[in-house]
Simulated scan of single mutants.
Amino acid sequence: MYQHHHISLLTENVTANKHFYTNVLGLRFIKNSVNQNNPHRRHIYYGDYVGTPGSVVTFFPVNFHSRQRVDGPSYFDGLAFNVSLESLGFWQHRLVNQF
């Protein structure tokens, strides 16, 4: 099975992004850095509390200005995290009560 180090995505609203990934999903805010290829672009990292491989998700803040962004074959519009069957009730309650 292939293990990825991390997934990088784009976000327009850093405050809402940080709230969702830390307060709702419970991930740890790992660091606020810069893109190594473009030091003028911010790069924020989240992950679980024990450093599980594949748990890291990162974001580049960008201004979309209400444009739909599509990047051809490298574009995807979703991200899924696995949870145990025993925790589904917990997550359903937590997510419903956040919105």
Rank of each mutant, 00 (worst) to 15 (best):
Y46D: 04
S74A: 06
P73I: 11
N37K: 05
F90L: 08
I7K: 05
F64E: 04
T58N: 02
V96C: 09
Y2C: 02
L79S: 05
V96L: 15
N37P: 02
V83Y: 07
S55T: 10
P61G: 03
P61W: 00
T22H: 06
F64S: 08
L95R: 01
T22M: 06
P61Q: 00
H5W: 08
H4M: 10
Y2D: 07
H65N: 13
I30A: 09
I7G: 02
Y75D: 14
G47D: 06
F81C: 08
G78Q: 13
A16R: 11
H19I: 14
H40W: 06
H5E: 09
V14G: 06
H4I: 13
S33T: 14
F60W: 03
S66L: 07
W91R: 05
Y21I: 06
Y49A: 07
V57E: 04
F60C: 02
N35Y: 13
V57L: 09
P53W: 03
G26H: 06
Y21V: 01
E86G: 03
L79G: 01
H19S: 14
L27G: 02
F64V: 03
G47A: 15
E86V: 04
D48N: 13
D71M: 06
P39T: 09
Q92F: 05
V56N: 05
F20W: 08
P53G: 09
G89L: 12
S66C: 08
Q36W: 05
L9T: 11
A16S: 14
S55Y: 14
H4A: 12
D71K: 07
H93K: 15
H43I: 03
Y75H: 15
D77Q: 14
D71H: 13
V83W: 05
N17K: 00
G54E: 01
N23I: 00
V70Q: 13
V56W: 11
Y49K: 08
E86L: 11
Q68N: 11
G54P: 02
R67H: 08
F90W: 10
G54W: 07
L79T: 09
M1I: 10
S8K: 04
R94M: 02
A16L: 12
G72D: 08
P61M: 04
G89K: 04
L10T: 12
R69V: 11
H93C: 04
L10I: 10
Q3K: 13
K18V: 10
D48K: 07
Q36Y: 14
M1E: 15
H93F: 12
N17Y: 05
F90Q: 08
V57G: 03
N63C: 09
F60V: 00
K31M: 10
L10G: 01
G47I: 08
F99Y: 05
Y45I: 00
N63A: 12
P39D: 01
V57S: 03
H19N: 11
H65E: 11
D77V: 00
G78D: 12
V24P: 01
Y75N: 15
Q92K: 15
L79A: 03
V56D: 11
A80N: 09
V56Q: 10
D48L: 12
V57I: 15
F90I: 10
N63D: 15
N82S: 09
N37A: 11
H6D: 02
M1F: 12
H5L: 05
N82C: 04
Q36M: 12
R69T: 03
V96N: 15
